[in-house]
Design a protein around this nucleic acid. Structure first.
Lengths: 264, 264
DNA sequence: GGATAGCGTTCAGTTGACTGAACGGTGCTG
DNA sequence: CAGCACCGTTCAGTCAACTGAACGCTATCC
C-alpha cells in the first residue's frame, strides 16, 4: 500500500460546517490507513486527535450505521462501505461499457485490461477485465497506485494543464520507487509527459513490477463534471511485441473514444 | 417503563449519540438507493427528513471528506467510498485466500467462482474468480442480490436458526421474481432450506438467469464476530453434468473449510 | 411579462452535543 | 500480591451546532 499524506489539511482557522461528520470521516480514514485495520477506541482517539469520550460517541453512531463494525474492543471498517462503493461504481455507465467492449474486441479480449480514475496524485482501479489467464494482477478493484508508477497514471496526468502539473510535481520532487526502473524525480516524469502528449498514449516499462509492461490512454471527460478516466493493458515483457502493442493502443483509443462519447 | 416521572433516560426512538453522523449516513444511503444516484439538496432534505439548512451543512462536510461529489446543484456518491470499500475487502484474508485456492484447484480453477456475504435478506458479492471465459457474469463486486434468488443466498440463510428464518420469511411472504423458475413464497423457500441443510449445499436451477445453474456452500464463521460468508460456482445448464457438480461441491466444501479454519 | 413555485443560502436564538476529569475494571510488572 | 498502566465509560457544565423563517435567485407557467 502506498503512503498518502493528507493533501490539504485544512488549518484550524476554517471550521467544518458539521464537525462530527468530518471527524467521522477521519476515523474511517484512520481505519483504512492502519496496518491491520483493527483499532481500539484509544488508538483512534490518539490517531485522529479527539478526546476519547467524543470518539466513543462517534464510534457508536458509526457502528449503528454499519459503517464500522465492533469486534470486542476493536473496530474495523463496516460492510456498508462495500455496498456504497459498489453503488458508486454501479452508477458509472463507463464500467459496464468497458466490460462489454473488452469482451468483443479482437486483441483486448485476450489481454488484462483495467479502467482507472485519477484521485490526486494516485490512480484508483475501478474495474478489471481478465482475458489473459497467464497474467493475474495482485492489485484489486479500489486499490491505489501513485501516478508516476503506472502507464495509466501518466496518461491521466498528461491531460492536465501544465501549470497544475508543475505544482503537483516540482522538478526536484522525489517520487515513490518500486523497481530500479521507477522514475525518480518530477523532472523525469515531466519529460515523459511531453512524449506522452505527442504520441497520444502512455507506456510503462517495468517501473512498478519487473517483467511487466503497460500501455495506457486517457478517456476524454464525458459531460462537464465526470472524473478523469484512463484505460490500461498489462502484458508480460517477455512476450510483448511492438506490433501487438500498436494494435492494443488502437483498440484502447477506440474504447476511450466510445466511453467519452456515449452515443457513438 | 412504568414510571413516567423518571427523567426519561431513553426516549422511544433511542437518540443517536452523534446525530450528525447518523444523518450523514442516511444521506449516503439515500443517494445509494435513488434511481439515478443524483439528488439535489432539496431532494435529500425531503428524502431523509431533515431541514434544508441542516442538510446543506451536512453536504458541505461530506463533500469536504470526498464521501460525496457535487455536480452543479446535484450530489452523487464520492470516490472515497470506493477506496474505503476496497480497504474493507483488502483486509479480509478470506478474499486473498479465495483467489489463491481457486487458481490451484483442479476443477474450480476452470469455473466461475464467487465469494459473497450475507447482509439482511440480500447477499453482497465480494470477489469473483473467472476461470471460465465462456461464462461472464453481469453482476459486479459489491452488487446485491435477494437471497431467495441465488444458491449462495440460500446456503447462507440455511445456517440461521429456524426462528429467525420464520421471521424473515413468513409462509405467505412474496419473494422477488426474476425468471419463471424463481421461488415465489416464503413457504417454498423454507422447503428448500430443509433440503439444503440435509445435503450440505445449495442449488439454483435457472431461478435468477435462464440457462444458468449455481452450486453454493456456506463458510463456517471464522472467529466469533465475522460476517457470514458463502461460496458459489456458476455454470451453463447446457453443459452441466451431475458428476461435474459433485466434484465442484467437494472443492467448494474444501475451500469453505479452509476459510473457516485459518491454520488448517 | 408578471406571477408563481422551487431552489440554495443566510442569520440569530436556543437547544443539545462535546469536553475533560474522575471512575471502575482489567492485564501486565515488579 | 500490590502496584501500575491502560482501557472504556460516566457525568455535569459550557459552548457551538442545529433550527426555521426570511432572503435572493432562476426556471416555469398562464
Amino acid at each position: 500500500m502506498a503512503d498518502s499524506r493528507t493533501p490539504a489539511p485544512d488549518k484550524s482557522g476554517a471550521a467544518s460546517p458539521a464537525p462530527a461528520v468530518t471527524r467521522a470521516a477521519a476515523v474511517l480514514d484512520a481505519l483504512a490507513a492502519s496496518a491491520t485495520g483493527r483499532l481500539t477506541l484509544s488508538d483512534l482517539s490518539r490517531e485522529v486527535g479527539i478526546p476519547k469520550s467524543s470518539t466513543s460517541n462517534l464510534l457508536l453512531a458509526l457502528e449503528e450505521a454499519r459503517l464500522i463494525t465492533r469486534h470486542g474492543s476493536e473496530f474495523t471498517l463496516g460492510r456498508k462501505l462495500v455496498e456504497l462503493g459498489a453503488a458508486y461504481l454501479g452508477r458509472m455507465d463507463e464500467v459496464q461499457e468497458f466490460y462489454r467492449y473488452c469482451e468483443q474486441a479482437s486483441v483486448l479480449s485476450r489481454e488484462t485490461v483495467r479502467i482507472a480514475m485519477l484521485d490526486g496524485t494516485n490512480v484508483i482501479y475501478l474495474a478489471r477485465y481478465e482475458g489473459h489467464p497467464a497474467v493475474r494482477l495482485t492489485s484489486n478493484i479500489g486499490d491505489k497506485m501513485p501516478v508516476s508508477l503506472c502507464a495509466v497514471g501518466k496518461a491521466l496526468i498528461a491531460r492536465l494543464n501544465w501549470h497544475d502539473i508543475d505544482e503537483m510535481f516540482p522538478d526536484t520532487a522525489e517520487l515513490p520507487v518500486m523497481t530500479p526502473k521507477s522514475l525518480r524525480t518530477g523532472a523525469e516524469l515531466k519529460a515523459q509527459l511531453k512524449e506522452i502528449r505527442e504520441q497520444g498514449f502512455a507506456f510503462e516499462d517495468e517501473e512498478s513490477t519487473t517483467g511487466v509492461v503497460c500501455l495506457a490512454v486517457s478517456v476524454p471527460t464525458r459531460g462537464a463534471h465526470g472524473p478523469s478516466l484512463g484505460l490500461s493493458v498489462t502484458a508480460l515483457k517477455a512476450t510483448y511485441t511492438q506490433e501487438q502493442g500498436s494494435q492494443m493502443v488502437k483498440e484502447l483509443k477506440e474504447l476511450a473514444h466510445s466511453l467519452g462519447n456515449p452515443m457513438g
